[in-house]
Design a binder for these strands. Sequence first.
DNA 1: TAAATAGTGTCTATCAGACAATATCGT
DNA 2: ACGATATTGTCTGATAGACACTATTTA
Lengths: 224, 224
Amino acid sequence: MVRQLYPLVSADVALFSVADDRLQVLLVRREHAPEAGLWALPGALLQPLGDADLEATARRALREKISVEVPYLAQLRTFAGASRDPRGWSLSVLHFALLPRDQVPAVVRSSVDGVRWADADAPGRRLAFDHAQQIQSARTALRQRVQDHDLPLHLMPERFTLTQLQRVCEVILSPGPEQPVRLDKGAFRRRFAKSPDIVEVPGAFEHGAQRPAQLFRVATGFQF
Amino acid sequence: MVRQLYPLVSADVALFSVADDRLQVLLVRREHAPEAGLWALPGALLQPLGDADLEATARRALREKISVEVPYLAQLRTFAGASRDPRGWSLSVLHFALLPRDQVPAVVRSSVDGVRWADADAPGRRLAFDHAQQIQSARTALRQRVQDHDLPLHLMPERFTLTQLQRVCEVILSPGPEQPVRLDKGAFRRRFAKSPDIVEVPGAFEHGAQRPAQLFRVATGFQF
DNA sequence: TAAATAGTGTCTATCAGACAATATCGT
DNA sequence: ACGATATTGTCTGATAGACACTATTTA
């Protein structure tokens, strides 16, 4: 039994997006055994002949399962052990990815065909393997990084207002939809006023049923 | 060729310690091919039949190579790809560990027998595989965590003075021995005065050629 | 004009860095 | 007493949170 000598190696992806003031994570239904029928994070077995590294494996998983190319993808942590997969010793490198709302393709948005967005804080009854734990791990890391850095920018569409950016941050920092975190408007704007990562689009405004709001975009050359 | 179907899986450990105001990382000389004779981080190939998870593999590596049991060991990041090991597709889960100075066994301290402590900021000419990159990655993570949390406590001996603790933090935060970072004494003591993670040992003092210093120890129940 | 949201200004408690002052030991 | 380090105290500039105020649009 080769499984006793070599572990299964795969890459899983926690793909997050924000819609309707909800932080969502993408799940796919497993078609084959083991755990057939259960919801799982999109993932793929490593193909040493085709994948140059693990990020390639992760991106291939998204391509194969949901036909998506994400702008931001980072490795998070590795889950491994003898008991997390019934087939034997397995190793899964968890990645997390962020998808701006306006880049969600129609095939994913429609929530059919074994693909759905789940509430990141309550992804469902029982998930395949240790994916519930993986989601929680990714959820925590996401909240952590929003506190420090400018990571939420990866979730914004091409153009956005400061209020929209603040909503996204509030959603990510909240433990769940029931206990929303409210950030102070003044402090929030102060913080991003000093940031070189966003610039305002001159003359561009978001119009609603009230005073229009200045539109911003991510600065050119912004990475990470 | 099985290597074309299954990657090599291993766990490497960056073991840090502070001595003589230097941050050091432990290296072992490779005995067998590939890269025989080069210095490398201690590591071990995954043994699915014996290792329950990757932390077990990492701890086994330290046991086998240098007969050391470390109190603190954490997973850091996974390095993988087709070109980092001449044998083919390989995957290595980098861990990092901290060893208090008074727990360094004699066999390691003596720096013989294919084991040596290297300067963490200049580990040497050429190391095996991508281990130079791995050390730099671990070095950065260590500096980062010292900024935020109370991680340096894992590097302290059973009892220590606040000045000793401050030295360790300064060494870790410094880019290298040439440009030492100096922390303010008052601010440093303020920070740890509020911390519940250390407590003073009543009546215990460190005596030198000057005013004795209060000794502290890590609080019971302190983890991470 | 009213409603609603955008955007700005101000006050304050907190905190880190800088630095001075005092305390207590060995010699 | 002196040198050296420990320990404490004070001042100040920067900052985040709270909150009030003004501005500008649509209806």
